[in-house]
């Protein structure tokens, strides 16, 4: 198939960016979106031009490294799919596709479509862990967990930290990511001793990184490749509220 691409090109964090137009000819319909960009890049390199920089790693929807806002929709906006798993058959012959980076002041552009998402690492450092040595895999029935709790924790743990929620949010808020991590760890017994410290630490790290505030519009959940539901955010709010009150009363 033949497509017209309008791709955001930006030399570095501080340089101004612009949309550059490319013709993507003879793209196989079975190519993934990233493979389409690979083809375009090979041709750019052959003609001595600077290839388009974009992030990727596993290309099977599990690492969270790929990104891209495609026609205004992170990961293409289908929901439940990462850009690496998006196929060109979803597009129409002759279509114009605008490709931009995940935009947020907390995700500065490294180059072109690649952004620095280390703000997420700082949020994890704020409390997204369990600080006990668990050793090797424990006996499965050693710590019983109710089925519904296990299911909820497991669904939340599916978050791959891609940042599409931030990119889709009208306010570049990271609430869905933080909510997924807090729901995961605050649900299981192993996470209980640090539950209040965790949520306070992670929300403060989130605020310090300059993400926006949630306005309960749920654009995040609509694009999340792991379909983390917006209810996780209500849970985050509840956990934060109780932790903040406890902190104010008993320190």
């Amino acid at each position: 198939m033949n497509l017209t691409l309008k791709v955001w090109r930006q030399k570095n964090r501080n340089a101004p960016g612009h949309l550059a137009e490319y013709q993507a000819r003879d793209i196989p319909v079975d190519a993934s979106f990233l493979e389409m960009l690979d083809i375009v890049n090979e041709r750019l390199i052959e003609s001595g031009d600077d290839p388009i920089a974009f992030d990727h790693d596993c290309r099977e929807g599990i690492c969270g490294m790929c990104s891209l806002t495609i026609n205004g929709k992170p990961h293409g906006g289908k929901g439940g799919v990462t850009t690496c798993q998006l196929h060109m058959r979803e597009f129409q012959e002759g279509q114009t596709i605008v490709i931009e980076p995940f935009r947020a002041s907390a995700f500065p552009v490294v180059k072109d479509l690649a952004v620095n998402r280390s703000a997420f690492d700082r949020i994890i450092q704020g409390g997204g862990f369990i600080s006990v040595r668990t050793g090797s895999a424990p006996e499965a029935n050693g710590t019983p967990i109710a089925k519904d709790v296990a299911d909820r924790a497991f669904a939340a743990a599916a978050c791959i930290g891609c940042g599409a929620c931030v990119a889709a949010c009208k306010n570049a808020s990271a609430m869905l990511f933080v909510a997924a991590k807090v729901t995961h760890l605050n649900s299981v017994p192993q996470g209980q001793p640090e539950r209040d410290r965790r949520v306070l630490g992670m929300v403060r790290a989130m605020d310090a990184a300059g993400f926006g505030n949630c306005t309960n519009q749920y654009e995040c959940a609509a694009v999340c490749p792991k379909e983390i539901p917006a209810d996780a955010i209500a849970r985050l709010n509840r956990d934060y509220g109780t932790a903040a009150i406890k902190e104010a009363l008993v320190g």
Binding site: A104, S105, Q217, Y218
Partner: peptide, 23 residues
Amino acid sequence: QNRAARPQEYVADATLRATRSSR
């Protein structure tokens, strides 16, 4: 704060789920 969190707007902007009243 929300405005400051996205200094560079999307050129192609899309809305998937947000209601008109919420915006």
